[in-house]
């Protein structure tokens, strides 16, 4: 595989990681704990999309080989992930008084509950959306790039969502409050921001983006109850690389980690004997290295972030 082909795959994979890592980073800084249920929130989004797409069907014209009905179904998936996360926050996390480590451990339990319920409803086997898979786009093949129209749809949707989030953060009242809270929750509170409401909105946005990431991950591979949990550590690597609490850092970190994972085959070409099977291991080692050398990540400021 050529470098350009690996890079193209990397962009597609990255866009999914980016969607997931924004939410994880937001929740890490605003809710104050490492949410181990984030990967399974992606799974919730994917399976909700599957159900909604089954109900809606491929109505309307197709954009990039994806029927319009699928985009509507992704919307349902986003909403479902957000609702599930907010309900969990109000019923479980809010009622706890156990500190950030206790919340972290609780979120593992939540992750298992999500996954168990999905597995009970849909079985442990992999499933696919009812969309015929496509051949790579002809006109790009001459450059050695093998990506399908579905991949292109994934990248464009992710770009659209990230742009929307950027507008929200920079140009709306809620966005300014969220940035203020991620920066310094106490200061935000004494400034009269209703922090509880902003916290709920961060859950909505973070889980919603994770749901979208899960939906497109299902289009990229297939759906299985473990799909999100398997990706969780890669997403953590992206968040830590980007800097916890920074949305833009998460975008950058997600992009870099996604590229690194997909470009791992290049290592053996330059003489480093690390095969594709260690792609994720490379990401984890980078994560540990970042934690040691610069725990604030690329975009993080020097002050201690949320958490403990």
């Amino acid at each position: 595989m050529s470098v350009i082909e690996l890079a193209a795959n990397g962009v597609v994979y990255s866009s999914i990681i980016v969607l997931a890592s924004i939410g994880l980073s937001l929740i890490y800084s605003i809710a104050g704990f490492a949410n181990f249920a984030h990967g399974d929130t992606m799974t919730v989004g994917a399976y909700a999309t599957l159900v909604a797409f089954g109900l809606i069907g491929g109505v309307g014209f197709t954009i990039l080989g994806v029927p319009l009905g699928f985009f509507a179904a992704v919307g349902v998936g986003i909403a479902a992930a957000a609702v599930v996360a907010v309900v969990t926050q109000r019923m479980v996390y809010d009622a706890l008084d156990v500190g950030s480590i206790g919340l972290l451990i609780t979120s593992i339990g939540i992750a298992f509950i999500y996954r168990a319920l999905i597995q009970m409803g849909f079985g442990a086997d992999t499933v696919r959306y009812d969309i015929p898979s496509l051949r790579p786009i002809e006109s790009l093949q001459q450059y050695g790039v093998l990506i399908t129209a579905h991949d292109l749809a994934t990248v464009l949707s992710a770009a659209l969502l990230v742009t929307g989030l950027h507008v929200l953060l920079q140009h709306t009242d809620l966005g300014r409050k969220m940035r203020a809270m991620a920066d310094n929750p106490d200061l935000a509170r004494v400034s009269g921001i209703r922090t509880y409401r902003v916290k709920l909105w961060s859950w909505v946005i973070g889980a919603g983006l994770a749901g979208a990431g899960g939906a497109f991950l299902g289009l990229f591979n297939q759906l299985s109850p473990r799909m999100g949990f398997n990706l969780l550590l890669v997403v953590f690597a992206a968040v830590i690389l980007g800097g916890i609490g920074s949305v833009y850092g998460a975008v950058l970190g997600g992009f870099l980690i996604g590229m690194i994972v997909e470009m791992t085959p290049l290592l053996s070409r330059v003489g480093v004997p690390i095969g594709i099977e260690y792609a994720e291991a490379v990401a984890f080692l980078i994560m540990v290295a970042i934690l040691l050398v610069r725990p604030t990540g690329i975009a993080g400021d020097t002050a201690e972030g949320g958490g403990v």
Partner: peptide, 28 residues
Amino acid sequence: VPTLRLRADYLAIATLGLAEVIRLFLRN
């Protein structure tokens, strides 16, 4: 040696990552 200096939640993530590296090693 590298991880025990980390903050508690970072230690959790780092050890989970390293455990996966060991599992991948034994599998591959």
